[in-house]
């Protein structure tokens, strides 16, 4: 886990990590949230709606923004204030996702940083993007 302090963070800093979305992640997310929507549970339903397979929950994909802030940038001292996320393409079980965050602003008054984050699939396609405001405690 990274332990960047506010003073160590610079505009332009980047952090990246990769993760593979597994079936058990999808199952665990469904159990935790109670979201039983068939698009995320049934391949047949998803195919009928024009998708390749059942679609990974967008909020499961977005949960990696939490990891980005809490583990990588800034890491230990992170406190997420806000997150504006967009879901651009479907994510499927087995996809390898690359999560990248870049610091775009710092605010000295509140020790806040702003991060532009993107998540790409194994083909390099942008599947999600987010604008995050993170306090450094």
């Amino acid at each position: 886990m990274n332990r960047y302090t506010y003073d160590e963070i610079e505009v332009g800093m980047r952090e990246t990590f990769t993760v593979v979305v597994k079936e058990e992640d999808q199952t665990a997310f469904r159990r935790i949230t109670g979201d039983e929507n068939p698009l995320h549970r049934e391949d047949a339903f998803a195919r009928e709606k024009g998708y390749r397979d059942k679609v990974v929950f967008g909020m499961l994909t977005a949960s990696y923004y939490s990891t980005l802030a809490g583990v990588y940038l800034p890491g230990e001292r992170s406190l997420i204030h806000s997150l504006d996320a967009k879901f651009l393409k479907p994510v499927y079980i087995g996809d390898q996702l690359t999560v990248e965050g870049k610091v775009t602003e710092k605010n000295d008054t509140y020790h806040l940083i702003r991060i532009k984050a993107v998540i790409r699939n194994g083909q390099g396609e942008k599947v999600s993007k987010a604008d995050m405001q993170i306090g450094i405690i």
Binding site: S82, N107, T109, Y110, L112
Partner: peptide, 24 residues
Amino acid sequence: SLEHINLIIAMEKRFQLKFDIKEV
């Protein structure tokens, strides 16, 4: 409280000044 922070940040940018957290 979050929008208050956003207001202060927007004002710092617009007026090109820095506030002290105690004064705001």
